[in-house]
């Protein structure tokens, strides 16, 4: 009996997210003609590739109990650097992509280093990172840089045909691969489990002998890598670099992670959930387009609202959970003794 209740406890939030997605997609299908098609479903993926990639990195950060506000501007910086290297410096794509990814990793390492080494608050450091990234975009160029490169054009235009006349873009494959990698890393690697341990109780993780310092830095490197990769994927759609790309995308990303069932206080969450969170986000966007009269800013407001609802939901779930096991959780005695 105990076993059963555990399973529900752990996957409950995943089901909630999945349920929300089904309900929203279902509601759209019932309300609008032409909504319920395979291609429209695949479009959800195609429209949100970059968000999925960002979400994977952010999931790790949030599970560890941290936050990364720099992802949007780092994405933007990646688009600027990539397009500048391609168009202005005429680098080869096989050089540009590793360079941009390395830049993302370095940026993440820098932030992770400050946060870990000097025990600084993640949000203030990554908030500064948000402005640093944005400022560096302007250093690269004030104007939009169009990308004129064969490989990029190819990535932008090619359609990978699936069955029944439906297709996806190569970016979807990249995004899905990142999600799969994220699921694997979070569930089946030492790094992944250490992230959970840190989020559960950082002090314990240290005392259990886990490599907390290294892992924390690595988490922000992963997030930096994902931001840079998302930037590259972003340019596959826009074929340009622009300093104002991804403004406010940090909330969108955090929102999708939260909607995906990851606890904002850390210690619990799933990459798969984040993917569904992103799909929910995509569905809202499409619904607003189909609805026609609302302007696109309503997406922002809806997302803000959903985050609010999910944070409430998480608190309610946690309250219920600690209610059932209050005997173990009560702060009855374990007040640390300082002797």
């Amino acid at each position: 009996m105990k076993k059963k209740s555990l399973i529900t406890q752990r996957s409950l939030s995943l089901f909630v997210t999945l349920g929300l997605f089904v309900v929203m997609f279902g509601a759209g299908s019932l309300s609008f003609i032409g909504f319920f098609t395979l291609q429209n479903f695949l479009n959800l993926f195609m429209n949100t590739t970059y968000l999925m990639i960002l979400g994977v990195g952010m999931t790790f950060v949030i599970i560890s109990g941290g936050i990364d506000l720099s992802v949007g501007s780092l994405l933007s910086l990646a688009t600027m650097v990539a397009s500048s290297l391609l168009t202005k410096s005429h680098w080869n794509p096989s050089l540009v992509i590793p360079t941009v990814l390395a830049m993302g990793i370095a940026f993440g390492l820098f932030q992770g280093f400050l946060i870990q080494k000097f025990n600084l608050q993640p949000f203030i450091i990554t908030l500064a990172g948000l402005y640093l990234g944005r400022g560096l975009c302007y250093v690269v160029s004030i104007d939009t840089i169009a990308i004129d490169n064969r490989f990029w054009h190819h990535m932008a235009n090619v359609q990978i045909n699936l069955f029944a006349n439906s297709y996806i873009s190569p970016s979807v494959i990249i995004a899905v691969l990142v999600v799969i990698a994220g699921i694997f890393v979070s569930r089946s690697t030492k790094f992944g489990r250490t992230v959970f341990a840190i989020g559960g109780n950082e002090q314990s993780a240290v005392l259990m002998g886990l490599p907390v310092a290294r892992t924390k830095m690595f988490i922000y490197m992963v997030s930096g890598f994902c931001s840079a990769l998302a930037g590259i994927v972003f340019t596959f759609t826009t074929l340009s670099g622009y300093s104002l790309n991804g403004v406010g995308m940090e909330l969108d990303t955090i929102a999708t992670v939260v909607i995906g069932g990851t606890l904002l206080t850390g210690g619990m969450g799933s990459v798969l959930g984040t993917m569904f969170g992103v799909l929910v986000y995509g569905t809202i966007q499409v619904l607003i387009v189909f609805q026609g009269t609302l302007n696109s800013w309503w997406t922002r407001i809806t997302i803000g609202f959903l985050v609010f609802v999910f944070v409430l939901l998480q608190r309610a779930l946690r309250a219920r959970k600690s209610g059932t096991s209050s005997a173990t959780q009560s702060r009855a005695e374990p007040l640390p003794r300082r002797s």
Binding site: L251, T299, I301
Partner: peptide, 10 residues
């Protein structure tokens, strides 16, 4: 953060 972005939407 909710109002940071939702606010701009509003």
């Amino acid at each position: 953060l909710i109002l940071f972005v939702a606010g701009r939407g509003i």
